[in-house]
């Protein structure tokens, strides 16, 4: 079980890295808004069209 003397510090280093990443993300504002970015994937990349757009899907 002496391997634990190596593995546990290694685990702590990884935890430290994770925390650092989390701190960076928080400071970067990644957690300021958790709702609206989810909607952005739903929108079309194309510019919102004018009413007489040709490729308009048929209405149900």
């Amino acid at each position: 079980m002496t391997i634990l003397y190596v593995l546990i510090p290694l685990g702590l280093v990884l935890v430290g890295f994770g925390l650092w990443a989390f701190f960076w993300a928080t400071g970067d504002g990644q957690f300021d808004d958790l709702d609206s970015p989810g909607w952005s994937v739903l929108e079309d990349d194309t510019k919102p069209a004018n009413p007489d757009r040709k490729d308009e899907p048929p209405q149900p």
């Binding site: 300021d32 808004d33 709702d35 609206s36 909607w39 929108e43 919102p48």
Partner: peptide
Amino acid sequence: SWLADKALSLQSGVLDVSVNPA
């Protein structure tokens, strides 16, 4: 918030919009 974001982004001269629904 999506609506506000999109409506503003369509305006020329708008550089950045961040809407926080919370």
